[in-house]
Design a protein around this nucleic acid. Structure first.
Length: 440
DNA sequence: CTTGATGATTGTTG
DNA sequence: CAACAATCATCAAG
């Protein structure tokens, strides 16, 4: 092991007898006898390396048994402490570096280093279970889970191995130092420091292990469930929730960050439906909710007709579920609303979204309809509405309904900035009755 | 396999 | 930087 030699070098450097010059006398043994004694001992120590092995051995033994030995030892230790080692005290504190923290976080999030049992399944399950859908990805992810738990296992065995090696090495070094402390000035404090150094070394190895584990996980992830290309459809509930929001905010379908988060939570899409935890260190995950709304807006705009049915559906849904009381009130106030042809099975609603819907249509000036309505040449509002209405199976009678404050889609294909996003809190924003009879 | 739907990505724009 | 627009790649139904 490379560490070992390094450590030994350190040890050697620290403890070489070079430091042992000019010794103050321990206690007040002021008599010449003592001074002479100590001087003698020191001399012996200093010259011990010049002697032959046998000779030195014998001398060493003699010194060890010397009555002044304990005192000398502690003094030497003290001196060493003050000279060579004092430098090092400052740069000692481990920086508890953020890199390691990051790795730890990731491993924890990934379920690699986290609570035992279940392997990666724990993490993935946690990620997907909350979804409430879970079912669809279970198969998809089983392979991933297997691999992940494999990684996890390797990680743990390696970790254990390193720990064991670290302990072994530590005790070994400690024994060695203790042994040597009989002949060299090595204080317990020094030994402790040595142990710390060893631990630092090993923890850096551990970090490497963590790093490579992280890399492995990342690779695995990118291979198996990177949703970048292998897209998964959202669950039914998810799209439902998103659609509900979209159509009930049709005049301004731009959810705020909070709203997006809320939606994401509700839909359990989270960030890019991969895994909620991943978002944190996988910096470049745009919100899937944002994607969805982006797609939705553009596609809705491109072909409103196609979404009409859907719009009615969701508008109705929100109306029914959320605002029955208000709806009733509104309905009362509009009992004489222009009767539309067949009252569909669901009857007539006061539709929060539908208001927008028709406003949108009323705001059209031709940029939307080419896709769906074979334009007869007329491009002005009424005729377009007519055309759209026809294409949707709406009678002309609806035109009357569509004459509301024109916000929503503007003529250029963008949504007006909803100055009063009244729809954000209360979906009810217009009193109009719409029939969801889309029989066509 | 074809086709429409759909989530994600990329490049552009204000 | 967010929104848009175009496009890609995959899904899922037929």
């Amino acid at each position: 092991m490379e560490e070992q030699s390094h450590l030994m070098q350190t040890l050697g450097g620290v403890t070489l007898a070079g430091h042992l010059v000019a010794l103050p006398v321990p206690h007040d043994g002021s008599d010449a006898r003592n001074k002479q004694d100590i001087g003698d001992i020191l001399h012996q120590i200093m010259t011990i390396t010049d002697q032959s092995l046998d000779e030195a051995q014998a001398k060493k033994h003699g010194l060890n048994c010397h009555r002044m030995k304990p005192a000398l030892f502690s003094v030497l230790c003290e001196i060493k402490e003050k000279t060579g080692l004092s430098i090092r005290g400052s740069q000692d504190e481990d920086p508890s570096d953020p890199q390691l923290m990051r790795l730890d976080n990731m491993l924890l999030a990934e379920g690699v280093s986290g609570p035992e049992k279940g392997g990666g399944a724990a993490a993935v399950a946690a990620a997907t279970a909350a979804v409430g859908v879970g079912a669809d990805n279970s198969i998809e992810h089983s392979d991933y889970r297997a691999k992940l738990s494999q990684i996890r296992q390797i990680y743990h065995t390696e970790l254990e191995k390193y720990e064991q090696a670290c302990n072994e090495f530590t005790t070994h070094v400690m024994n060695l130092l203790r042994e040597q402390s009989r002949t060299r000035p090595i204080s317990p404090k020094e030994i402790e420091r040595m142990v710390n150094i060893i631990h630092r070394k090993f923890s850096s190895i551990q970090m490497q292990l963590k790093q490579s584990t992280c890399e492995a996980v990342m690779i695995l992830r990118s291979r198996f469930l990177d949703a970048r290309r292998k897209r998964r459809n959202f669950s039914k509930q998810a799209t439902e929730i998103l659609n509900e929001y979209f159509y009930s905010h049709l005049s301004n379908p731009y959810p705020s960050e909070e709203a997006k988060e809320e939606l994401a939570k509700k839909c359990a899409i989270t960030v890019s439906q991969v895994s909620p935890d991943l978002g944190r260190y996988c910096a470049q995950e745009p919100s899937a909710v944002s994607n969805w709304f982006g797609n939705k807006r553009i596609r809705y705009k491109k072909n409103i007709g196609k979404f009409q049915e859907e719009a009615n559906l969701y508008a109705a849904k929100t109306a029914v579920t959320a605002t029955q009381a208000v709806a009733a009130a509104v309905q009362n106030s509009q009992t004489n609303s222009p009767a539309t042809p067949s009252s569909g099975s669901s009857g007539s609603y006061s539709l929060p979204g539908s208001g927008d819907m028709f406003m949108s249509m009323s705001g059209l000036n031709g940029s939307y309809q080419p896709a769906q309505v074979p334009n007869t040449g007329q491009t002005q509002g009424d005729s377009i509405r007519h055309a759209i209405g026809q294409s949707l199976g709406y009678s002309d009678g609806l035109r009357g309904n569509s004459l509301y404050s024109p916000h929503g889609l503007n003529g250029n294909g963008g949504w007006h900035d909803a100055v009063t996003p009244s729809s954000v809190t209360s979906p009810i924003e217009g009193a109009n009755s719409v029939h969801s009879d889309t029989s066509n």
